[in-house]
Design a protein around this nucleic acid. Structure first.
Lengths: 348, 348
DNA sequence: TTGAAAGCGCTACCAC
DNA sequence: GTGGTAGCGCTTTCAA
């Protein structure tokens, strides 16, 4: 009658004829175990099919090796890039990303944060700088580094790695005006759900106004316009109401592509009849025809910088001393560069 | 001098004036604690900012609440759908998806499996039915349900929820032939890296051959053709070599879109001059113009069925008795339906 | 309904 | 280089 549960270090120790402590060491790099006994232990482990239990290890070391990361959507090439960078730069240090997605819903974000806190992550990465009040409190009280990404919050919880979405909007507006367009519209970003899209819209609007142009072609909607279909429908509606529209920025390349398809279906040529711009430097904006003018926010680099920040924080455990008030003292706010990509769709 | 670490159940117990055991009960639904003491405990917990430590809880209950899931790419709308379904259907039961992606690399998959096993997941979901020999062994010996998805392996490790990629290829080939096309090509799926794409190619090739048609227009490449750019380049190459090509299937909608853009750039009309088909029912194939004929594999439903299977398995803990040989007895293999979506790009 | 004791599997710490 | 002891924070089990 064999034991029906997974073998433990004690089992390995028994088979290898050593103490469990030595087994523990054998599984750790740079630990003082003679090469012969280590080999004997590894053989025994192999024979038993032993796998280290990092749950138990974490309880003892008080390090779970988790980094909690929350993004708005799991189906988004840009957030995927940030996640890739985090994974690549954290896994070397034995850190495992615990991934959650909020579906652009702050209540859901709060729920995920609460669930993740039970897993005792060593750092928490969230997207954006706007959260429920309760969520902010949980994050601030977590006792671990918190990094807000993809935005530059006015008052960050702790660290931030991002860019100004409003500035992105302004840059694109300036570009369109520079190309000579006057009757300019905007699609997306007018609902709470897509905060960062809304910031881009606001920046865009600000600049359009500053240029003395009308904002009547800014599309109003009750729903977030973040899919191709939504972009297509919005563009159809906009064209119906304002057939003389000369240029439109969409809150994302994805909706911009949908918008461009609506133009094509309507028999309009891009950019001869109408110019279209997007945001996010998605694959599609670079590969469709005509290519869509966009803004690259360096999604991968956001992940890289965030990972660096985390590794730095975890290296120096000093700040654990000050239980509160970590934020104001040694919190960092990193502004990432963004790049306008002028392309055919706006007449380049 | 306050304690500088996170509060524990004992801290809460002390403040609430009960034993830690009662605190434990207070945090569990359906446990026998008087309403008054429960409230007192929750207040104390709130005051201290206490959060349950599920690492420690898991050590005691021997249930981590993790379900390990490995997909090839985190930047893929279809795998994202499967993940969404898993998340939605597992989180109600308190299960947390532990997500990893292999980048279409079996060695990397093996590495992730090994890392995940240390977290003691209660079930493991992998994509595809081909793994390194070592990886198969680890999965089989894990002692928890293993579900291979997106494929129907000849000899599954344990369970499987998927479809026949070869059949998908055959279906599309038959459709193109039915539309009257004779000079038919295929782009993608000719490298080991994209196993399921390769299966589709083989099925497609089989059917094209069976129809007595040539397969000389099957594009050869050293790399996986899974991006828009790769699809575009492949199509350019194909058109150069065989300008008379009448129809092409791509291993994915993503590359199909790239291929279509190559046609547009070359001044070819789709489908008048050349027909294009894809695979996967991605957003882009439905929203581009012309729409691209595709095959819907029900990515979300794969996740739903997989989640159901996991919940069933975890409900009946019986099979833990038989330590090996779980597989052959009560393993299930679920074939999911796939749907051809005939669209404009192939002359519908 | 509540509490005390034991232990989950591992590692920190201190001996040798 | 190796082993013993204690304990991480929780839950199971048994008793009251």
């Amino acid at each position: 009658m064999t034991k029906n549960s997974t073998p433990t270090m004690n089992d390995v120790a028994r088979v290898a004829g050593v103490s469990s402590m030595t087994v523990s060491r054998a599984f750790k790099a740079n630990s003082s175990v003679s090469e012969t006994t280590r080999q004997r232990i590894l053989d025994a482990a192999d024979q038993l099919g032993y796998v280290l239990d990092s749950t138990a290890a974490g309880l003892s070391t008080r390090k779970t090796g988790f980094v909690a990361v929350i993004i708005p959507s799991i189906n988004n090439a840009n957030f995927a890039l940030t996640i890739s960078a985090l994974n690549e730069h954290l896994s070397n240090s034995g850190l495992q990303v615990l991934l959650g997605y909020s579906d652009y819903d702050m209540e859901e974000e709060e729920r995920i944060v609460k669930a993740f806190l039970r897993r005792r992550p060593e750092a928490i990465v969230v997207t954006g700088g706007v959260h429920t009040e309760s969520c902010r409190r949980y994050l601030a009280a977590s006792g671990v580094p918190v990094i807000e990404t993809w935005d530059l919050p006015a008052s960050p919880i702790n660290h931030a790695v991002g860019f100004s979405n409003a500035r992105a909007g302004r840059i694109m507006a300036r570009h369109l005006v520079g190309q000579g367009y006057k009757k300019i519209g905007f699609i997306g970003g007018n609902v709470e759900r897509d905060r960062r899209g809304a910031d881009r819209r606001h920046g865009f609007e600000e600049e359009v106004r500053a240029q003395g142009l009308s904002t009547e072609r800014f599309w109003e909607s009750n729903e977030a316009i973040i899919t191709m279909e939504a972009g297509r429908n919005a563009m159809s509606g906009l064209l119906e109401k304002f057939p003389d529209t000369e240029a439109v920025m969409c809150a994302s390349d994805v909706s911009a592509f949908g918008a461009m398809m609506a133009c094509h279906r309507a028999g309009l040529r891009v950019p001869e009849d109408i110019a279209i711009a997007g945001f996010g430097a998605y694959d599609i904006s670079a590969n469709c025809f005509p290519e869509i003018t966009s803004i690259d926010v360096g999604a991968y680099d956001i992940g890289v910088e965030t990972a660096k920040l985390i590794l730095m924080e975890l290296a120096g455990d000093s700040r654990k001393l000050a239980n509160n008030s970590t934020a104001t003292d040694n919190s960092r706010c990193i502004e990432m560069p963004i790049t306008l990509l002028p392309r055919l769709s706006t007449g380049e």
